[in-house]
Design a protein around this nucleic acid. Structure first.
Lengths: 219, 219
DNA sequence: TCTGCTTTGTACCCCATAGATACGATTATA
DNA sequence: TATAATCGTATCTATGGGGTACAAAGCAGA
């Protein structure tokens, strides 16, 4: 059996599970802050409003982190989930589009706590040239290619209008960027299977809220 | 049969379907911009990368919008989905937390195209007092209660640090706000069943991306 | 050490949802 | 008018989320 075949046999962990992991991570962080050292799946389940069963099954996708009769050590579990999510490794981010949203992301200090460090912003607006956001320089878009070639860029956050998003995404992938955090109002379908994309559609979220407002009013 | 019993018999439309509707809406908007007047479920399915069957079934949850042998009229379907999502009604938004993210949301002109109008921002920072973001005034947090009592507030966007989020959410609900768009890094569990909450956790999304980067590298 | 309690890891089951297939009904189009 | 296109809808299958149950393992107190 080849390595690839072997890997194919491994049970793929569904994105539904992955989506829940940051939430566990967040609650465990809060528990640490509260000075709590151990927790049972049952206790955690009532705090998080999910079932204890689901917690145990989710965690078991990655290995047995608990002990019968004891529960989970909060700090240990926090660290392990951190490793799973890659939160301990440093990730360099560039932000393309230095408008309000781009600058807001650059200012979000909390991301750095998790190893996500913004190293540059880019924009076409010459008025922004050379300006800094929290010591992070805003470059002109022409400099993008050189910058990516000469620096390690793990993630590119796209916060420019949708008209330009696809072209820039392609350019970035061409230059070797392997992760796109897309805020533009399009679905980026990357041909290259080695590229991962995470879309954040704020309008979609707002519309879902709007639907639920109307539904709620009706009931 | 009472009205309530009758309503209970209606098949509840799952949130999975609702989540897809804004995406249909977005593609239809693009089709309108491209001057395309009619479209078949088959054609749309290849553009959106979902099955034609799912499109027809999703739309049929809300009624028959198409015509056999013709397909769907793009403008009509766009308008109908808009109605379903409540995008044609005006929604007044207040933003609590006038930091970078709050100001970024206030600057997002596109939301107004869908009827979501930001009417005020609030913050505790006295330096911001009286400043305006795109003609929208930043108020002090003390003024929140009066403002909500004297204005129609459909949605409150929370963009302040998590420490204050729960208290302010409770206050807003107390004052009659029925929809919370939460960007703070906590899960808001509202006691009041008449309140709808939509959480946007950017960190969670970033961590999911991070996991997929690591997974992708491994394969 | 022994006993009873706690709690995990895991097997098994059910149900919702995605998605395929199929087809009658209806409309467009040549 | 005949043929092709296409919706609305019923039915079926596969997948996965999530609940229930319980044996195994460790903890804690006597």
């Amino acid at each position: 059996m080849t390595y690839q075949e072997d890997r194919n046999l491994e049970k793929e962990i569904s994105q539904a599970v992955i989506r829940r992991m940051p939430r566990y991570y967040r609650y465990l962080g809060d528990l640490i802050d509260a000075g709590i050292e151990r927790i049972s799946s049952n206790d955690l389940s009532s705090r998080m409003n999910v079932t204890a069963s689901q917690i145990r099954q989710d965690l078991n996708n990655f290995g047995g982190f608990g002990q019968q009769g004891y529960g989970y050590n909060v700090q240990y579990l926090y660290d392990e989930i951190g490793k799973i999510l890659g939160v301990n490794e440093k990730h360099n981010i560039i932000i393309v589009g230095a408008g309000n949203l781009g600058q807001a992301l650059a200012n979000y200090v909390k991301f750095e706590k998790f190893g996500f460090v913004t190293i540059a912003l880019f924009d076409v607006d010459t008025k922004l040239k050379g300006q800094k956001v929290r010591n992070i320089e805003i470059h002109m878009l022409e400099e993008l290619e050189d910058f990516v070639k000469n620096n390690t860029v793990d993630i590119a956050a796209l916060t420019m209008p949708k008209a330009k998003a696809e072209a820039i995404a392609s350019q970035l992938v061409e230059l070797g960027v392997r992760a796109i955090w897309n805020f533009a109002h399009v679905d980026l379908k990357m041909e290259n299977k080695n590229v991962v994309v995470e879309n954040v559609h704020l309008s979609d979220s707002l519309m879902q809220l709007s639907y639920n407002i109307a539904k709620n009013r009706q009931e």
